[in-house]
Design a protein around this nucleic acid. Structure first.
Lengths: 190, 190
DNA sequence: ACATAGCCGGGACAAATGTCCTTTTAATTC
DNA sequence: GAATTAAAAGGACATTTGTCCCGGCTATGT
């Protein structure tokens, strides 16, 4: 449920420690900090080395929708770089985060010079697309109770403490509806 | 609204006519034919040369969700190839379609040998991800009337004749709800 | 023309979800 | 410990959406 990408972070760690390139910068973020701002122009990508962030869209009616929780190895900002568009979502640190930062031009250079990295990044985006598309249809076509149960199963193994507001935002519902669904689920599991 | 990708189809047309590669096969599909079957293993990608298809997920409760309508230049099956997983959605021809078909191993070879194609494909996936994610949050957080109005504006310019069932499946609602929303929208536009 | 079947729109009701606001609980300060 | 504030839970009602089903329209064959 918290997306991770071991091969990607390992690749960057190796690149960084090998000292063969000098375009990978390390950066630290604290809970609440924004790595990416919606509607802002981004000219860097990030790879999370440690920590957890939430990736969420703020709609024009004020409500938030959490696209995913991202952890170790997840790449951020690559969509903006590849499509040359403004960010369509925010990325905000939940825990303390250390991340690798690479500027757009350097990132393109890295992809050119490192065939394996190119493969890994393509795969990373493909996985994201797959997850996003599958969740969209599932969440759209199933009732809240069903989606909530799925969500709970997903975070059960994680040691992440998700706030109620975040659960509601992930499911795209109000807290009131979430409370009702939680009650339903516990009652039916007696 | 019907996704197209001119640069991708042009690239394939050039490759095909130049006769420098022999791994690009042309295939024809008729309305109703399936290019990709959900839950089946796919070992090819397609690039649509001409025609329109719908890409939809069938959920376990029997309902369908249309991810997108794809037209000229759209790539299909690449997610399955890159992530090495079963198809998570169906792709069905709406009009007659001609498409370029490339086997997985050949496709990887093409990407290796054609740097520009690699770029184009990465960009194509990035655009898909962006669109999918934006639509998911929008559709989840806005009422039907709002989403319907957006949808109508999108297909207004297209010469595509979308059935009511398809509109409902795209919006993730029942036909009954669609009819109500249609009535609302016309009444309010008086 | 008539009968039949199939599709389409909508009425009536049920279920799900959102909005608003009150109550309850927990936490904090003095 | 009492007072105050903030956070969580839920009641009451309105709105939205889904389910079920009926009646009408169209097409088709005989």
């Amino acid at each position: 449920m918290i997306r991770i990408n071991k091969e990607l972070v390992d690749y960057f760690k190796d690149l960084k420690t090998s000292n063969t390139v000098d375009c990978i910068h390390k950066e630290v973020f604290y809970p609440g900090d924004f790595l990416i701002h919606q509607h802002k122009k981004g000219n860097t990508i990030f790879i999370i080395e440690r920590g957890i962030a939430k990736c969420f869209v703020n709609e024009d009616n004020g409500r938030d929708f959490i696209q995913e929780f991202v952890g170790e190895g997840e790449i951020l900002g690559e969509i903006e770089v590849f499509t040359d568009t403004l960010s369509f979502s925010n990325v905000q640190a939940i825990t303390e985060i250390t991340a690798f930062k690479v500027y757009k031009s350097d990132f393109y250079k890295l992809l050119d010079e490192h065939h394996a990295l190119n493969q890994i990044v393509i795969r990373a985006i493909a996985v994201k697309l797959r997850n996003t598309a599958m969740r969209a249809s599932q969440q759209q076509l199933h009732p809240i109770d069903y989606n909530l149960k799925k969500f709970m199963a997903l975070i059960a193994n994680q040691q992440l403490n998700v706030s109620k507001q975040d659960i509601a935002d992930y499911l795209g519902i109000t807290i009131r509806s979430l409370n009702r669904a939680l009650k339903n689920n516990t009652e039916n599991n007696l």
